[in-house]
Amino acid sequence: MTIRVRRSGPDDRAAILRLMAAARGDGLSPDERAERGFVQGTMDEAVLARFEAGTGVFLAEEGDRLAGFAMTSGAVDPPDGPPRRTLEAARAAVGDQRIFLYGPAAVDPSFQGRGVLSLLLRELGAQLRDRFDLGVAFVEDANRKSLAVHRHYGMTEVPGFSVGERRYHVFTFEPAQFALPEAK
């Protein structure tokens, strides 16, 4: 079957929230979480609905199976903590550009290695490239898998920040770098 990517809607929320909960890696040791990668935080349907109403939640599916998702949100009044600090770090590094937040993103383990994240980045890049100059993501230092993924995709690392004992890396990318060229 073919994996297709689209924006999520109300009927997709339960599956997205289940994958997000599984991707947190609760119950794993710190080393297992670092090697496997993990998603931070929790979300409910109301928060997910706000993401969907904004810049969007992109999902990849094969048939009726959720393969992965990538969330995006606008840079207007982000919550305190890592999202706000990420925007501050990005703006300090790149100046006044049109920025959106990228993440969290997760791929179901049974779909990993099949290009799901590439498909998600391609679609969100195509849909957001005309409205934004940069996507910005934060990754906790303890999340070795996610750090490797962001570096693999050639995202630019700018100076990060700390919140309490946790150190975060900040990555920027131009959405157009992932979008396929427009057909002429």
Rank of each mutant, 00 (worst) to 15 (best):
R4D: 12
R4H: 12
R7S: 14
S8C: 14
P10V: 10
R13Y: 11
A14K: 11
A23V: 02
G25N: 08
G25R: 01
D26T: 09
D26M: 11
G27W: 06
L28D: 11
S29H: 07
S29P: 08
S29T: 15
P30G: 09
D31K: 07
D31I: 09
D31S: 12
E32Q: 15
E32K: 05
E32V: 08
A34R: 03
A34C: 06
R36K: 15
G37S: 10
F38P: 00
F38K: 02
F38E: 02
Q40N: 09
T42A: 14
M43C: 13
M43H: 11
E45T: 12
E45R: 13
A46T: 15
V47H: 09
L48Y: 04
L48H: 00
A49T: 15
A49L: 10
A49Y: 08
R50D: 14
R50A: 14
V57K: 01
F58D: 07
E61T: 03
E61F: 03
E62C: 15
G63D: 15
D64H: 13
R65M: 10
R65T: 15
A70R: 01
M71V: 14
M71W: 04
G74I: 00
G74S: 12
A75Y: 01
P78F: 07
P78E: 11
P79W: 07
P79K: 08
G81T: 05
G81N: 07
P82V: 05
P83H: 04
R84I: 04
L87R: 00
E88I: 10
E88W: 05
A89S: 14
R91E: 13
A93S: 14
Q97W: 05
R98S: 12
F100I: 04
Y102Q: 13
Y102K: 02
P104S: 00
P104F: 05
A105E: 03
A106R: 00
A106V: 05
D108T: 02
S110E: 15
Q112K: 13
Q112V: 12
G113F: 13
G113A: 12
G115R: 11
G115F: 08
V116S: 07
S118C: 11
L124T: 10
A126D: 12
R129H: 12
F132M: 07
D133G: 07
L134H: 05
L134S: 04
L134C: 03
G135N: 00
G135Q: 02
V136S: 01
A137D: 04
V139A: 01
E140M: 05
N143L: 00
K145W: 11
L147I: 11
L147F: 06
A148H: 08
H150L: 04
R151L: 04
R151T: 08
